[in-house]
């Protein structure tokens, strides 16, 4: 059942697992926030994380299919370079005008509850160093630097 959240004392926004009808709304919200249209990416993400009914992969949305106000995607990952099973969040988005009102926190809590039910006791993620909005959001949820370091190199 969808969990409802009252935002700004006027709207009630439900949090629930995504359905195929939500995908266009997710694509639109992501495009609104990032300025990039990634339709194929989000359809693939839904197929892999939302459509399978898997109890270790979660694609949650906030809002009605006609207007998605936020979403969060995560899965339980294990044993990457010795990392014990943990909940990995790799996408979170909230409509700009609804930020800092608790919707992102409720999405985070909803996916955290599912991770707990899946048997893991910690959450991990990776954010761009210059993405202060998302970085601050995860910090506000209580996340700290973990024991892993992200590395990369150019393949010239």
């Amino acid at each position: 059942m969808a969990k409802t959240v009252r935002i700004g004392g006027e709207e009630e926004i439900g949090i629930r697992p995504a359905t195929p009808a939500d995908v266009p709304g997710v694509i639109a919200l992501d495009q609104e926030v990032t300025g990039l249209l990634k339709a194929e990416y989000w359809r693939d993400m839904f197929d892999r994380y939302g459509a399978r009914g898997d109890d270790s992969r979660f694609f949650l949305v906030a809002g009605a299919p006609t207007r998605i106000d936020g979403f969060i995607v995560g899965e339980v990952r294990a044993w990457e370079f010795g990392s014990s099973p943990s909940g990995w969040i790799f996408a979170v988005q909230v409509r700009a005008r609804l930020r800092v009102q608790g919707l992102g926190s409720r999405l985070f809590e909803a996916v955290a509850a599912r991770f707990r039910a899946a048997g893991v006791d910690r959450i991990r993620t990776m954010v761009a160093r210059d993405n202060t909005v998302i970085h601050s959001f995860f910090r506000s949820q209580g996340m700290m630097a973990g024991p892993f370091i992200e590395l990369e190199m150019r393949l010239d």
């Binding site: 160093r129 202060t132 970085h135 910090r139 700290m144």
Partner: peptide
Amino acid sequence: DAQTGATLCSISLSTMLKLVARRP
């Protein structure tokens, strides 16, 4: 330095006070 800067930019006073209350 870049890592330090990103960390300090990401922690609001409100988040810092919550962290202090949690005593991690």
